[in-house]
Write a protein that binds this DNA or RNA. Structure first.
Lengths: 241, 241
DNA sequence: GAGTGGTCTAGACCACGGG
DNA sequence: CCGTGGTCTAGACCACTCT
């Protein structure tokens, strides 16, 4: 388990082991881990070494620590996963949470363009989801999502309901994949006939187009998404640090 | 200097003091700080306490540490400060670095809208800079920058050249202000007559509009910026973590 | 070999939460 | 009150850089 004369520092080994145990669901969301001393005894290292591992995990938001109480797996705040990277705000600057309406969901062969973004070969299987996102009863985003089947074995067999709003949460729970970073490219484009029909705007009106690639811990692309966003009543908000 | 029975942890006090000394230019970019032991003796705390302060500063990219060598103030990578948050990529996905052409630069009274973003009172002095940003000889961004004079005393007296491209670097050097986070809102809009003239596009063509507020370490707004971006040949790239 | 930061330990005292 | 995490110390050994 712990390999004392190893290349990896002890605290790093402890961190990896804890990450696995969290991923395995040993401590469900919202529950507490053993105390520092208990973990130190369990792994035969000092409390200080455990502390470093726990603090690193805390700084990555994998754990929360409460003085006097203990160390817990964060209770999942749906809003955090729902639109963690790409937040939608109304004209008053308030965050809003869109619903999803899936239009189609089918296996396709990746086009050259999609394959390039996902770092797979053209023609490889991708699950392609066409959906609109709805705010206050109005469709505001026309979105297509491409998921590389090779990295998500068995994803074809899940119902479309599981994929409805909380895609990142779904990936985390079913595939133990955590999306840790997203690369986005934003452009202004004009609505084509399909956008116009789905979003109820005039052909030629301006839309915010975002291409995003989501990466897992190993920095492999897990999702490519194109969104065309009617920003007449809402905007896309981003916090950069 | 160090206040032992204080509310603030010692390592936090040490961190603040070092931050001041770095800001004061005591260790110019690229030079090394005293060793952990030397700092520990100087401040009368243990090496471990100094270590925590140095590691926190390292994780904020204010310092770099080299095993066997020492702890240094990072040599400034111009490209890092140039477009640290808001990166521009061409159609091939390569980063490009725009030049700036300042059109006007004058003191104004803040409108209600600007005052709200900067958390100042309407009518307060703001330095207003109108500029276009140029890539490969073509104007692609029409930009207005608002700086709150009350938080940047004496900024009126600096020439416009100092303000040309590297605003964040200028703030860091002259005012010891580091921009640590930026809030942005993106929308798609259509070009008005002024945009059309400055960017050489047709009135009504789609532009990417970005409103951004830059915050310093204390999370106070230091800059409000509106950018209108012709994304026909370039896109705005963002890495989210 | 001397000096640096990186890791690890063992122990101290404090602040906080809950019985 | 006890147990938790938060801070702090003193000292050990290692890996690395430079000379």
């Amino acid at each position: 388990m712990i390999d004392k004369p190893s290349r990896q520092p002890l605290y790093h080994q402890v961190k990896d082991i804890l990450l696995d145990r969290i991923g395995a669901g040993e401590w469900p969301d919202g529950t507490f881990l053993p105390s520092e001393l208990a973990l130190a005894r369990e792994y035969g290292v000092s409390q200080g070494t455990i502390r470093i591992a726990l603090n690193k995990l805390t700084s990555e938001s994998r754990l929360v620590r409460y003085q006097g109480k203990g160390t817990a797996v964060p209770a999942v705040d749906a809003s955090q996963y729902h639109c963690r990277f790409f937040q939608i705000v109304n004209s008053a600057g308030q965050r809003e949470y869109p619903a999803s309406r899936i239009l189609t969901c089918q296996l396709e062969n990746a086009s050259r363009h999609v394959a390039e973004r996902l770092l797979i070969d053209a023609g490889d299987n991708v699950l392609t989801i066409d959906r609109v996102r709805v705010l206050a009863g109005r469709a505001v985003i026309n979105e297509t999502i491409f998921l590389p089947c090779a990295r998500l074995p068995g994803i074809e067999s899940h119902g479309t309901t599981a994929l409805s709003d909380t895609l990142y949460d779904f990936l985390r729970k079913k595939f133990r994949i955590t999306i840790v970073s997203v690369k986005e490219e934003a452009r202004a484009v004009v609505a084509d006939a399909m956008d116009a029909k789905r979003l109820g705007v005039a052909v030629g009106s301006p839309l915010l187009e975002i291409h995003s690639v989501a990466l897992n811990l190993e920095r492999r692309p897990i999702e490519f998404r194109t969104s065309r966003f009617n920003t007449s009543a809402y905007a896309c908000h981003i916090d950069l640090r």
